[in-house]
């Protein structure tokens, strides 16, 4: 467990440092993820502790978003002020952003496979 935390917190910290130092548009954890991915690809294997603990950790990813939901309480007046329009906007935009890229990727993958086979 300690080893897993050292890997994950270490890469997050590295991500934060690089992101701040070079004023990059991406937050530390996302950069940390990309850096760890590159490290694993170079090392061509996953350390035992990560192999064991990461799937267990990620199976509870939902837990970590619950505190953010409490913010609805603090900003409910702000949200209520715009009412139904906001619900429509969020619902339509979320569905479109699921659908259009999903369909595009399906199309591109089919063409890609076709080309590889040809």
């Amino acid at each position: 467990m300690i080893e897993t935390l050292l890997w994950l917190v270490g890469y997050q910290l590295a991500g934060e440092l690089i992101s701040r130092t070079f004023s990059l548009p991406l937050p530390g954890p996302v950069l940390g993820m990309l850096l760890l991915f590159v490290t694993l690809a170079m090392r061509k294997s996953v350390p035992e502790s990560l192999k064991l603990n990461v799937p267990r950790f990620l199976s509870h990813l939902s837990l970590l978003f619950i505190p953010a939901g409490a913010a609805v309480l603090a900003y409910r007046d702000l949200l209520a002020g715009f009412g139904w329009q906001l619900i429509v906007v969020l619902a339509v935009s979320t569905v479109l952003t699921l659908l259009l890229p999903g369909l595009l990727l399906k199309l591109l993958l089919a063409r890609h496979r076709h080309k590889e086979e040809a």
Binding site: L8, Q12, P29, F37
Partner: peptide, 21 residues
């Protein structure tokens, strides 16, 4: 709540492992 939320950072980093898979 922030103590639970803080784990989001390491969890994001951890996504590199299944991605590498």
């Amino acid at each position: 709540g922030i103590m639970v939320q803080m784990l989001l950072g390491p969890a994001t980093v951890a996504l590199a492992v299944p991605l590498y898979g």
